[in-house]
Each structure stands twice: as C-alpha cells, then as structure tokens.
C-alpha cells in the first residue's frame, strides 16, 4: 500500500476503498445500473455506426465521382471534434439514452466509413479483373470477393470503435444524464469523491477490456487467412 504513505488518498483514493465501494454499489444495484447504461449506449452506437458506416464506405468506393465531391465535407465533419457536438445532441435528442447513442454513433461512424473505403481502394485489381473475365455477376462478386475482402478492415474498425464508442457515450453522460458511468464519475468528482471517480474508471476499463477480447475473438475467427 505504497499510496497510503506516499500520496494522500484524497487525490488518488486507495485500492481497498475502491474495492469496498465496488462491493457496496453492487449490493445497491447502482453499479450494474450505471455500467449497463453505458454499455447499452456504447454498443448501440457502435452497432448503428457499423450498419450505416459500412454501406457508406462501400458507396464511397463505388461512386468515385460522387465521393470526390462529398469527400471534403466528410473529412471536415470527421475532423470536427465530436465532443463539441454533445451539447447540441442533448438539445436535440434529450438527456436520456438516445443522445448518448448518437454521441457514440457520431464518434465511430467515420471510422467504419473511412476504413471500409480505404480497404476497397487497396483491393486486388487483378482479382476483380479475373472475376470479370469469368463474367461474374455483381452480386456474386460482392458475396465472394468484396465482402470477405473488407472483413479485416471492419474488424480493425471495431477494434478502434470499442474505445471510441465508450468515449462518445461517456462524454454525453458527463454533460447531462441521470445514469451511466460517465454520469457517476461526474457526480463523484463534484463531491470530491475520488473513490467514486476511480470506481467509474475501473468499470470503464472492464468494459473496454471485454470489448477488446470480443474483437480479438472475431479477428481470430475471420482474419486467419491473412498470412
């Protein structure tokens, strides 16, 4: 317990205090309520970003001219710190679940779009040509070549997206919420309750770790063909 002697627990709390708090919050049901809220917000945002981002990424690769026109706008939206959108999203979508889902969604969306687009740009031209010489239909090529090709890029997006969707959800919660780990951290910090802040951070780390493990599983399952 080096922290006990070296640093005042007021700043960084103490592992034993954090463990105690985790236990008492678990008994109250508060821990699960907040963790579940953040988990739901982040995963809905991530799922939505996947559903919308992948088709847009494919369309960006397919319609090159439209993309040339749209790309500067997309890039400026991408470069916009999405954190700055949070107040607007709270006004638009309220302080409940939906505004946080939209925060997570807007943070991750571009990752899917740009990764899928990039993946398709680096697609093996010879492979496409070969299928064209065999007069493969567009549907056949999409199923047999295009979709398998972008799977590793989607998994790479998920890997980044796990962390970013949590960022989106938590930022939304910091600004205005009634539940969630970000809300709990914010509330604890307002009372100088360092233990509470660390409890929130510990749980966020747990969520991120579980997310990363799931992505690693997907990767092992679907990207094994990469030499």
């Amino acid at each position: 317990m080096l922290g006990q002697f070296a640093v005042d627990p007021i700043w960084i709390s103490r592992p034993s205090l954090i463990a105690e708090r985790l236990w008492s919050l678990t008994l109250e049901g508060e821990l699960w309520r907040n963790t579940q809220r953040t988990l739901v917000e982040a995963s809905l945002g991530l799922a939505l970003a996947f559903t919308v981002g992948v088709p847009i990424g494919i369309a960006m690769a397919r319609y090159k001219y439209a993309n040339a026109v749209a790309e500067p706008f997309i890039m400026s939206l991408y470069s916009l710190p999405r954190v700055a959108l949070a107040p607007l999203f709270i006004i638009w979508f309220g302080i409940d679940l939906f505004s946080k889902v939209m925060m997570a969604f807007s943070t991750v969306l571009f990752i899917f779009m740009l990764n899928v687009h990039e993946g398709l740009k680096t697609m093996d031209r010879d492979l496409i040509d070969l299928f064209r010489t065999m007069r493969a239909s567009r549907a056949y090529m999409t199923r047999k070549v295009l979709l398998p090709w972008i799977v590793p890029w989607i998994i790479a997006s998920l890997r980044i997206g796990v962390g970013l969707s949590l960022v989106g959800a938590v930022v939304g919660e910091l600004l205005g919420a009634s539940a969630g780990l970000g809300w709990y951290i914010e509330k604890s910090a307002g009372r100088l309750d360092t233990t509470g802040v660390f409890v929130g951070l510990v749980m966020l780390t747990v969520l991120a770790t579980i997310g990363n493990i799931l992505v690693a599983r997907l990767e092992a399952r679907f990207s094994g063909w990469r030499p």
Binding site: D129, L130, T133, P148
Partner: peptide
C-alpha cells in the same frame, strides 16, 4: 464462348 484468363500472379481468393 467462355474465355479463361490466367495471370502471372495466382489471383486466388486468399481466404478460400
């Protein structure tokens, strides 16, 4: 008629 093409590179589906 079907025309079959073969490249210098094998152009196989790497995941198949």
């Amino acid at each position: 008629d079907r025309v079959g093409f073969m490249f210098q590179r094998d152009t196989l589906l790497p995941w198949a």
